[in-house]
């Protein structure tokens, strides 16, 4: 059984990635590949729904950093929603809120693209 999983959905123009489990150095490539594919297809309005995310390491956070420039240069963005408090704390400690939209829930994240 994989300890990290992504499910993909669409809401109007926005791609929603539901991520589950632990995002660390080993599972990072899964998210990386998903983001690469989205960028290639120019689906760059992305909401990451982290309600199922149990753990994130800094290598996991690195994936967000690695592709944000490409995504923003195509007028897109990654918005992060519904993080558990423990996971949000890691984002917060490392200063992600200054660089990313991190919001309470998915609806709000989707609205921010409008």
């Amino acid at each position: 059984m994989s300890k990290f999983e992504i499910r993909k959905r669409s809401k109007s123009e926005v791609t929603i990635l539901d991520i589950y489990g632990e995002l660390d150095a080993h599972t990072a490539p899964t998210l990386e590949n998903e983001l690469k594919q989205l960028i290639e297809k120019n689906f760059v309005h992305i909401v990451v729904n982290g309600s199922g995310l149990e753990y994130i390491s800094s290598a996991g956070l690195g994936v967000f950093m690695a592709y944000i420039e490409d995504i923003r240069s195509q007028d897109g963005d990654i918005k992060i929603a519904s993080l558990k408090p423990k996971v949000f704390n890691v984002f917060d400690l490392l200063g992600f809120p200054t660089l990313y939209d991190i919001v309470e829930n998915e609806e709000e994240a989707v609205t921010r693209f409008k």
Binding site: S58, G60, L61, G62, M65, A66, L94, L99
Partner: peptide, 15 residues
């Protein structure tokens, strides 16, 4: 090397 890169990006925002 990949872990090294992502850690620099994620922990320190070094691109």
């Amino acid at each position: 090397k990949r872990i090294f890169k992502f850690t620099l990006l994620g922990q320190l925002f070094v691109r």
